[in-house]
């Protein structure tokens, strides 16, 4: 059965690391849904957050293959952790001849921010998990989405709470 997994990969910040990870996914025929890369608190290390899909055997294989890369420091299977995840989307919505009050209402409910306004469109910033962004885009579909960009999911494990 197809499942989705969020995987966090800490890698040495060397040139070509991203190509090694991306190449692994294509050469092993793994499905990647999103990939977000950035520096961490330690500039020598990058963190990649990968959302991958596949059956259980494939997802297990993805984690092992990521671990096998020489530049990989640590692979965290987020599904086995308590974690938070967020994604950011910028969406340019058509506003021509449309009920702006209704649109502003939706943006407000989703705690969105309007970053730019023009006579015929708005750019809205939405953060949340995958579902939240998907529901927002569905709701504003009627207005017409002119363009959209998403960062892909980033995730961090929660710290252990004191005195459990």
């Amino acid at each position: 059965m197809e499942k989705k997994k969020t995987i966090s990969v800490m890698v040495e910040n060397h040139p070509g690391v991203l190509a090694r990870i991306a190449g692994l996914f294509s050469s092993r025929n793994f499905n990647i849904e999103s990939l977000a890369v950035g520096e961490t608190e330690d500039p020598a290390t990058s963190r990649m957050t990968i959302v991958a899909t596949g059956d259980e055997l494939v997802l297990e294989q993805i984690i092992k293959q990521l671990n096998k890369l020489i530049d990989t420091l640590k692979v965290i299977d987020m599904s086995k952790e308590d974690y938070v995840e967020r994604e950011l989307a910028l969406i340019k919505i058509n506003t021509e001849d449309k009920n702006l009050t209704h649109l502003m209402h939706i943006i407000h409910i989703f705690k969105g921010k309007v970053l730019d306004t023009a006579t015929d469109s708005l750019i809205v910033e939405i953060t949340g998990n995958d579902d939240r962004i998907n529901s927002f885009t569905q709701l504003v579909q009627t207005f017409g989405i002119k363009e959209m960009v998403r960062t892909g999911i980033v995730a961090l494990t929660r710290s252990k709470k004191q005195k459990e």
Binding site: L57, E60, Q61, K64, Q65, N67, K68
Partner: peptide
Amino acid sequence: IDPTSISKIIR
């Protein structure tokens, strides 16, 4: 010695 060889083709 290579974990990726295990359960790659047969569980």
